[in-house]
Design a protein around this nucleic acid. Structure first.
Lengths: 221, 221
DNA sequence: CTATCATTCAAGGCATCGCTTGAATGATCT
DNA sequence: AGATCATTCAAGCGATGCCTTGAATGATAG
């Protein structure tokens, strides 16, 4: 009698999971974790075509992971709520905890799997307060301008080599990027270590920092 | 240069999500949340064929949501760790919070969407201590025997109508089943309400109760 | 060592997904 | 109202996923 409703419920849960099962959509969610965005901006950042991007966004909306609103002739998407971010983070944790393959990928990235644990956000906040750390924002400059950790310097991976001489060799450097899905910080740490600097990466990224209720500095202009 | 590793990472996360994207696998995980099981037992409980069940289990294992061990000629599967359970629960929360359709399904099940919030496990534990509540375990008797909340009565949905006269009309009844994915408790509450009893369901099921570190009674025999 | 049993592998059919292309919608601006 | 622009819809192709069937594996029992 009740096989149908039970299956229907499971189908709904499966729908939400399926929304997370395509790399393209994970990229979109990672972008949206930085803040709300229009379709075109998302397409450009992720390298998807406009139409394809739109379809993925609708699939995310069908699973209610994101919501949308109109702004003029543009449609702006954003994460529905913080639970979506939690779900993304937990998915990452489970995948990283259990998949040896992920470790191998990271090993390839940072040359000898990062032996140093990431710096927790609470620890970084404390160190920032006492000024005993250099913070590096490894995201594109437009995202940096849209909001960053107070006191952080901005440098993309391409610019990193150029600013190396200006970095102090005695203080520890903490790099962060978009969040746990993003590998910019991993790569930055690898580069800095190769040059003999004392670098670690922040646990999570700016979205998680903001979610903690910590201060975010926005450039006005 | 680094497009490949970044995509590879996302593919890994997507793999874990894809493992949760089939109702059949959610059923299997729901069963495994009760405790470790062999392939044949899982196939029987879920109604899948042996071969199909085995393939789903291997997919779950590939995503590292479950692990397996040999016991004689049987292969026993179990959830890898508590994080898997957390991920299932969070998936459910996001789906239920956001999908209007889920609400409609539940409305169909319990006849007028359950206006009473589920009883939290902490509250139930307190009420149990003072004896002001009747607890009903709405799972099959073999699962009840393998572990249940101390003081709980066991009755499947089929048996429920028969034991109705033996239930007190003044005390509140709290029903629980396998967990958030399971709808037995919803159905039991609907049945009890139709007969004028004061019934609510427990938040989560036995796996969540056990995860809290609360006492579980196992029948010896 | 052989027989037996639970589980896994392999191949096929059917459906769904993801991406592309080109047209349609819907809101703004002149 | 008509033109314009961002977004969405619709159809088609290739790839992948799920389920079934039948054979192969691998460990135990005699």
């Amino acid at each position: 009698m009740s096989i149908s409703p039970k299956l229907a419920l499971l189908e709904e849960y499966a729908l939400a999971a399926r929304a997370l099962s395509a790399p393209a959509r994970l990229m979109l969610l990672e972008q949206l974790a930085q803040g709300e965005r229009g379709v075109e901006a998302l397409a450009e950042k992720t390298g998807l075509t406009i139409a394809n991007c739109s379809q993925h966004l609708q699939q995310l909306r069908r699973a209610a992971l994101v919501t949308s609103r109109r702004d003029g002739k543009a449609v702006i998407y954003r994460l529905t709520d913080a639970k979506t971010l939690e779900l993304m983070d937990l998915l990452r944790i489970v995948a990283e905890r259990n998949l040896a393959q992920v470790e191998h990928i990271l090993r390839g990235l940072s040359g000898g799997y990062d032996p140093l644990e990431p710096v927790s956000r609470a620890v970084l906040a404390a160190r920032l307060a006492e000024g005993s750390v250099t913070v590096l924002d490894v995201r594109p400059s437009d995202e940096y301008a849209a909001g960053h950790i107070p006191g952080a310097r901005n440098a993309t991976l391409a610019q990193l080599e150029q600013i190396l001489p200006t970095l102090a060799h005695d203080a520890e450097i903490v790099a962060y990027c978009r969040g746990p899905y993003c590998v910019y910080a991993h790569q930055a740490v690898a580069t800095l270590r190769r040059h003999g600097l004392n670098a670690r990466r922040l646990e999570g990224g700016l979205p998680e920092w903001r979610e903690d209720g910590r201060p975010v500095l926005i450039d006005v202009g």
